[in-house]
């Protein structure tokens, strides 16, 4: 885990309010589990495709035709680098009144959701994610376009975030 303990990056004020230690929000990166999972999925799927693309023409038409395996392999190498860049771009910060999520390398997107506007916080974890010990946190506001999802969190961190967001959301609830 390269996130460190998130609690240490926040100062708890006298009334239990939480304030950022500095002016710039304290960004938290995603744990490496997500990168491992995405890379494994990439290697497995593109490996299978490369095997099929190389083996079939190679056996049927001659060894030179096995070169069809090269494009999937190149794609795999490119994807290997890209998944890391994408994974690095994901980060989030809990500020005193809102949650920031920043993501994307070429198409960057930064979302700010005030805690008071949260309608529901969801923690999801699929079978593959569970195997890698990962969970996603998704925030829903009254606007469906909000799309504030943090993928690939440690389940303990996901639950802490969920509880904290719910608590802050209740305290600052504002609705529509």
């Amino acid at each position: 885990m390269d996130t460190g303990s998130p609690q240490n990056t926040w100062l708890v004020g006298p009334q239990g309010t939480v304030e950022a230690a500095g002016g710039e929000p304290e960004w938290i990166a995603l744990p490496p589990g997500l990168l491992r999972m995405r890379r494994l999925l990439l290697v497995v799927w593109l490996g299978l495709i490369a095997l099929a693309a190389g083996l079939l023409p190679g056996l049927l038409a001659g060894p030179a035709w096995a070169a069809f395996a090269l494009p999937p392999l190149a794609l795999m190498a490119w994807g290997w680098v890209m998944t890391e860049r994408n994974w690095r771009s994901w980060r989030y910060a809990e500020r005193a009144d809102d949650l920031l999520i920043s993501r994307g390398v070429l198409w960057r997107e930064e979302t700010v959701v005030p805690y008071g506007r949260m309608q529901l916080v969801e923690v999801t974890s699929g079978p593959v994610e569970r195997h890698f010990g990962l969970a996603s946190v998704q925030l829903h506001t009254a606007a469906a376009a909000t799309d504030a999802t943090i993928p690939g969190l440690d389940p303990a961190e996901a639950e802490r975030l969920r509880d904290r967001l719910t608590e802050l959301g209740e305290a600052r609830s504002a609705g529509l």
Binding site: L106, W107, R108, E109, E110, T111, V112, V113, P114, R117, T141, A142, A143, A145, T146, A148
Partner: peptide, 9 residues
Amino acid sequence: QSVRMTQGP
């Protein structure tokens, strides 16, 4: 409800 900033290449 929420604010977003997006930027393409």
